[in-house]
């Protein structure tokens, strides 16, 4: 079954790092630059993201994740560069269009925020299995219902996608065209989506029963099939990252006070 998760176990060190450590890294990568405020901090964060991804042989896959954002970033540059309210200092001109320094700097910052965010998240997304994240959350005191929701989304979607193909066949068999003008396609939407939605909602009833009869509704203690032994490095990393965020905050406060 084709999963929608982007996780692949490519055997590199990053796949064995505990997901919570990666979450801590994301927190640090996303929080530190705005706390510090400098564009260089963003640059540094992005460089660290890239180094980690390269060392885990995952940069290429990460690239696929961020590439879609380039058009948005480009339009941000164009619109801010041309029209931003604070624009005062012309930077360059293409024909009659004059780009201003203030707008471009703003766009640069926005672009850096986006890229940094996408890259740091891709570290978690590409190298941690969603079911593992859910299991670990449950083991650390989150509700088993929450981890159930997370894990089951990943099995429900491929199932629904399989059904979708059959439904398309069934409705075409009854003379419904799925190609053609916008009006035709709009009309096709309801016969296609209603069966998959309805049957997946109806299936929830049986699924709920299946869970009830296996004791899922109970509030008692639970046990776990396996436990993820955290590596020594996980702990050290987590603490260092926390310290990094605290140091950045302290620096910020000091700068304010002075």
């Amino acid at each position: 079954m084709k999963s929608i998760s982007l996780y692949r176990d490519n055997g590199t060190w990053l796949c064995r790092v505990h997901p919570f450590t990666k979450l801590m890294y994301i927190a640090a990568a996303i929080l530190c630059p705005p706390i510090l405020g400098s564009l260089w901090a963003y640059a540094a964060a992005i460089v660290v993201d890239i180094i980690i991804l390269v060392s885990a042989k995952s940069l290429k896959r990460a690239k696929n994740l961020i590439i879609f954002s380039f058009t948005i970033i480009l339009t941000i540059f164009i619109i801010k560069g041309l029209f931003d309210a604070e624009n005062a200092t012309p930077a360059f001109a293409i024909g009659p269009a004059v780009f201003y320094k203030e707008g471009l700097m703003k766009a640069l910052r926005t672009g850096a925020v986006i890229i940094n965010m996408l890259l740091s998240f891709s570290i978690l997304v590409l190298t941690s299995k969603p079911e593992d994240i859910a299991d670990e959350m449950e083991r650390h005191g989150f509700s088993p219902r929450l981890s159930y929701v997370i894990s089951s989304v990943f099995s429900i979607i491929p199932q629904m996608m399989g059904t979708m193909d059959t439904i398309t066949d069934a409705q075409r068999s009854r003379g419904m065209e799925t190609e053609g003008s916008l009006g035709k396609r709009m009309k096709a939407f309801i016969p296609l989506i209603t069966p998959v939605v309805t049957s997946s909602l109806i299936n929830t009833r049986e699924r709920a029963i299946a869970l009830e009869v296996r004791g899922f509704g109970g509030k008692g203690k639970r046990s776990y099939l396996r436990t993820w032994q955290k590596h020594r490095g996980d702990k050290a990393m987590t603490i260092s990252l926390a310290i990094l965020i605290i140091l950045a905050s302290i620096w910020r406060v000091i700068v304010w006070l002075i």
Binding site: E131, A134, P144, S147, Y148, S151, S152, F154, S155, I156, R207, A210, L211, R214, G215, F216, G218, G220, K221, R222, S223, Y224, L225
Partner: peptide
């Protein structure tokens, strides 16, 4: 199927986990 497990083995253990 519980829908939360991606291995037969884990699926079979799902109920036992709930009963600790």
């Amino acid at each position: 199927l519980s829908g939360a497990k991606d291995k037969v083995y884990d699926e079979v253990c799902f109920g036992m986990q709930n009963f600790a």
